[in-house]
């Protein structure tokens, strides 16, 4: 596996094999996250293509600021949430039906082999108290604001904020060797 810096320098140098290597390293991971947030295969595919091409044209990653993995996953989440918000004009019923349909398909037919990191992250999330985990998922995958989460989970805003604080502290501790 290539180092972040190797990949980045090769991308900056417009080495086409670097783009292929980047896709091979992170393509499925990024697609899975995009699909989880967008709930629609075509949307997820379009987003991943858009992200890779934007990186190819202008790679804004700064190796001094963190890992390439972090840059890519945060980029996927951020752009997927932007798309999700733009979709809010579409009928929620249709969207939800599509989402459920895709989730079923992904779980039953095409789920690929997982890896150790994914398992550890899932376990760390599972160890959180139910409402903390739910709040984190609503923020992370649906892009809800803290006020919206407060309403959705019927909890005071201050409580929601403390859930984030506690869940981050707990997960940083559980996954400390990975971050």
């Amino acid at each position: 596996m290539l180092s972040d810096l190797e990949l980045f320098q090769a991308l900056v140098a417009k080495d086409p094999s670097a783009l292929a290597a980047l896709y091979d390293c992170y393509g499925d991971l990024m697609y899975s996250l995009a699909l989880r947030i967008l709930g629609n295969r075509q949307e997820a595919e379009d987003l991943i293509q858009e992200i890779f091409l934007s990186i190819w044209k202008q790679c804004n990653y700064n190796p001094a600021r963190g890992s390439l993995r972090s840059f890519l996953m945060i980029l996927v989440r951020s752009r997927a949430i932007d798309r999700l918000r733009a979709q809010k004009t579409v009928s929620k019923t249709i969207q939800q039906q599509q989402k459920e349909s895709d989730r079923f398909a992904s779980n039953s037919l095409e789920e690929a082999a997982t890896d150790e990191i994914s398992e550890r992250v899932r376990n760390a999330l599972a160890q959180l108290p139910e409402k903390q985990r739910r709040a984190l998922e609503l923020a992370y995958y649906e892009g809800l604001s803290q006020s919206e989460i407060s309403q959705r989970l019927d909890a005071p805003l201050g409580t929601v904020k403390s859930w984030f604080r506690l869940s981050f502290a707990k997960m940083r501790q559980t996954l400390q060797d990975l971050i």
Partner: peptide
């Protein structure tokens, strides 16, 4: 970034 690993692959 790690939380992004949680969804089913």
């Amino acid at each position: 970034a790690l939380i992004g690993y949680a969804p089913a692959r």
